[in-house]
Computed example of a mutant assay.
Amino acid sequence: MALPVDVDLALVGGGGAASLVLAALDRENLSGVRVAIVDPVHKRGQDRTWAFWGTPGTFLDPLLSASWPAVDVVTAADRRTLALHPLRYAMLRSGPLYDLAGAAEQRLGAIRFTAAAGALHDDGGHVTVHDAEGAPLVRAGWVLDSRPRPPGRPGRTHWLQHFRGWWLEADRPLFDARRAVLMDFRTPQPARGVSFGYVLPVSDRFALVEYTEFSPAVLSGGEYDAALRDYLTRLGIDGDTVRVREVENGVIPMTDGVFESRPSPRVVRLGTAGGATRPSTGFTFTAMARQADRIAREVAAGRAPLPGPAYPARHRWMDAVQLRALDRGLTDGVAFFGRLFDRNPAERVLRFLDGTTSWREDLTLMASAPLLPMIRAATGDAVARLTRSAGRGRTGGQR
């Protein structure tokens, strides 16, 4: 059996989280760090689209397909155009990020193993990455594992953000390229959950149009297509006048379950597996970028590549309360989001969803939510936590 290759850092999984780490290491000029990537597929081309907000002037700017200084939030009653300054909403397709990571991989002299990773054996000093058959591939000082996995500790609420998007091309101008539609709640609402349309225009003739639900279960393919056709009608677009160039599907966890970000001394989980997905919205990209930047800075300083929590603990609690309120029917989802944007500057709401607001701003946001439903949800969440804690205590006492 061949001996494993020795490296300083092994990336298990080669998607968005790993690509951002490679790019961040390259920006820090860490060519002396020995890096390996273990993934069964060498990611290239367009396989997903990320939408996120942030300030202009970052390394991502040349990679963007489009960005917008304003977004629309639409209900049956009105349409609000929200100015985002000093932020902007941006769209990044996967191809340019994979290309950037590929160039970084070359400059770093990284070793790539096109294989599915199996067990990770952490002896406290190094981590051995095995392939799916159990053969050792890499012995690393640290492993950054971005493979998807469920939460290490189940939550009290289990919802999903699930969607289907059509990349539409038209022969005449149909879209307003000056702003994106962040949430259009004119879609029929599910019995349990929230649905909305979503429009990201690259030009007046080319746009990504999505149907999204926050709810406990996914739909069938036919149901997503019917919802998209209905939404196009609401946009005033005849489906026969546009061509579907690509289709995107996704399912993202929305749960207050705890993702185990450090399963062993020298293994660190990234992306959704590391808690980067915001439970209240499913947004992930900005937290992954923050994780990558922090890791690269720590490595450059000669410290352990630990990214820190993706979001403050108080935000995770606020998300748990919001999910419980929606799940138990204590508040109407459309009214909740509409009220949040009505009573706060858009950039404050977006910074909250990115986990960068202050305690004072968080209190202001909480005050803008419907008071009695949130109190009931918070009380129920506290009781559920205490009940679970007591149950664990009794189980521990019987061992």
Rank of each mutant, 00 (worst) to 15 (best):
V12I: 13
S31H: 14
A24L: 02
G13S: 11
L22R: 02
L25P: 06
R34W: 03
G13H: 11
A18G: 15
L30K: 12
L22S: 05
N29Q: 15
L30C: 04
V33I: 15
L20Q: 11
D26R: 04
L9I: 15
L9F: 04
V35W: 04
D6V: 12
L11T: 05
A10R: 06
A23Q: 11
D8N: 12
L11N: 09
A18T: 03
V21A: 06
L11A: 07
G16M: 14
A18I: 08
V12R: 04
L20V: 03
A18K: 10
E28A: 15
V7L: 05
L25M: 06
L25R: 04
D8H: 13
V12D: 08
A24P: 01
L9K: 07
G32P: 01
G15Q: 08
V7D: 00
L3C: 03
L9N: 10
A18W: 04
L9T: 00
V7G: 00
V21M: 05
V33T: 15
S19I: 03
L20M: 13
P4C: 06
A18F: 11
G13I: 05
V5Q: 15
V35D: 06
L9R: 03
D26W: 03
V7R: 01
A17H: 05
E28M: 10
L20R: 12
D6F: 00
V35F: 07
A18R: 04
L9E: 10
D6W: 08
A17F: 09
A18S: 15
S19F: 01
D6Y: 01
R34F: 06
L25C: 08
L9A: 02
R34G: 09
L9G: 01
L30F: 12
S31N: 09
G32D: 15
V33G: 00
V5L: 15
R34I: 06
G14T: 07
P4T: 12
G32K: 10
E28K: 13
A17N: 07
R34L: 12
G14A: 14
S31Q: 14
S31E: 15
V12S: 06
D8M: 03
L30E: 08
A24D: 02
A24M: 09
G15D: 13
L20Y: 02
G13Q: 03
D26Y: 08
V12C: 08
